[in-house]
């Protein structure tokens, strides 16, 4: 309670104790809130829950039970920047005949018949000043699950890593990949 004595020279010891007991939790609470805000700022990207999709596509059925390789649908991933979302036509290669009686598949077939794309909700997004290119990561032998988590067991895909700059850099440092800003920032 030294600081109170300095601020208010004529205060008694009891008064100082009472004021101290009342004010200290407030100060600690404030510091706690500030620390929490700083932590949230420093932690960068947020890991969000699974967004709702227009069609309840289940990765655990396709990538899990049926064990279809990721590249079968996400065809750009080996050679392009973007892994690419398959077109309705590609879904229809199978779903022209497979499980045509289910309501979710009939939603898909409606898109096929009306010649409209499915408006999927994007799950993973890096900021606009970052250019992430899938190809070199796959070529380097990284598993998709390294960044995307165990998608084969997810009914609804959600982001599992922060994908913040520190997240990328940690991995780049471990694998002696480039740490030059210009490699990722555009």
């Amino acid at each position: 309670m030294q600081y109170l004595g300095a601020l208010l020279p004529r205060i008694t010891r009891l008064q100082a104790l009472v004021i101290g007991l009342a004010v200290t939790p407030l100060l600690l609470g404030g510091a706690g809130v500030i620390a929490l805000l700083l932590f949230l700022m420093a932690s960068g990207g947020t890991v969000t829950g699974a967004p709702e999709q227009p069609i309840a596509f289940d990765h655990s059925v396709h990538a899990g039970e049926a064990a279809i390789p990721c590249q079968f649908c996400h065809r750009g991933v080996v050679t392009e920047a973007s892994a690419t979302i398959p077109s309705v036509q590609q879904c229809m290669f199978c779903h022209g005949v497979v499980a045509t009686d289910r309501p979710q598949i009939q939603l898909l077939q409606a898109h096929w018949e009306t010649n409209t794309p499915v408006d999927w909700t994007r799950v993973h997004r890096v900021p606009d000043h970052v250019r992430f290119v899938h190809a070199p990561h796959i070529q380097a032998g990284l598993d998709c699950a390294t960044c995307h988590g165990d998608v084969a067991s997810m009914s609804e895909v959600r982001q599992v890593r922060s994908l913040s700059m520190g997240d990328c850099q940690g991995c780049h440092r471990e694998n002696s990949a480039s740490l030059d800003c210009a490699t990722c920032h555009k």
Partner: peptide, 11 residues
């Protein structure tokens, strides 16, 4: 956590 110049991979 700050890389030194030597750690920034020269290309």
């Amino acid at each position: 956590t700050i890389p030194t110049d030597a750690e920034v991979t020269p290309l």
